[in-house]
Simulated scan of single mutants.
Amino acid sequence: MVVCSVFRVTSRLARSSLGAQCCARALYSTEHKARFYTKKHEWVSVSDNIGTVGISSYAQDALGEVVYVQLPEVGKQIAAGDECGALESVKAASEVYSPVSGTITETNKEVESKPALINKSCYEEGWLFRVKLASPEELQQLMDQAAYDKYLEEH
């Protein structure tokens, strides 16, 4: 809930240069159309039934400089919507929720040691964890890029 408040408060603020860089990379990424989003600003892209999860450019911009990352344990079973990690920034703390159900297969060790990667490259180097999907049909409940962009405009 803290994140939602932070997002609402900062939704009208100008994007930082880091946010703009991350967003620009996202617009030109080859995986741009394969990304799905939650209303809490997590994203997932899927390849061979493995989802890579991170937070959106909007989320990292609203949080500000990320200084700490707590990720789920490899092997942990999670359900869509479960809290499975946390991010702390100079502005706020935020929970991370899984957009899909499954088993954690990998965490991004690089982002744990260098949390600023989330601000620098939220869609590429700054991903958080990977999950083997238990129910691929859950992707239909998430927003594609166009729906997410519209959601951001409305909120």
Rank of each mutant, 00 (worst) to 15 (best):
W43D: 01
A26W: 06
V44T: 00
V46W: 06
L63V: 07
K33C: 09
S29W: 03
F36Y: 13
E42G: 01
V53P: 00
T30Q: 12
A34E: 11
S47M: 05
T52A: 12
S45C: 05
T30M: 14
S45M: 02
L63Y: 03
A59T: 03
D48Q: 12
I55C: 14
A62L: 10
K40A: 06
L63N: 03
S57N: 12
E31W: 13
Y37R: 03
G54Y: 00
T30G: 05
N49G: 12
L27N: 15
H41N: 07
L27H: 13
G51E: 04
L27C: 11
A59R: 02
K39W: 02
A24D: 15
N49F: 13
Y58M: 11
T38Y: 05
G54T: 00
Y58W: 07
Y37N: 03
R35D: 02
D61I: 04
G51T: 08
V44F: 01
C23I: 09
H41A: 03
G64D: 10
C23F: 14
E42C: 04
R35E: 01
T30P: 04
A59C: 13
D61H: 08
L27I: 02
T52W: 03
D48I: 00
S56V: 06
N49V: 13
I50Y: 04
K40N: 09
K33T: 11
S29G: 10
N49W: 12
R25D: 12
L63M: 14
K40P: 00
H41K: 09
V46S: 08
I55P: 02
I50D: 09
T52H: 05
Q60C: 13
E31F: 12
A62C: 15
W43I: 00
Y28C: 08
I50H: 06
A59E: 03
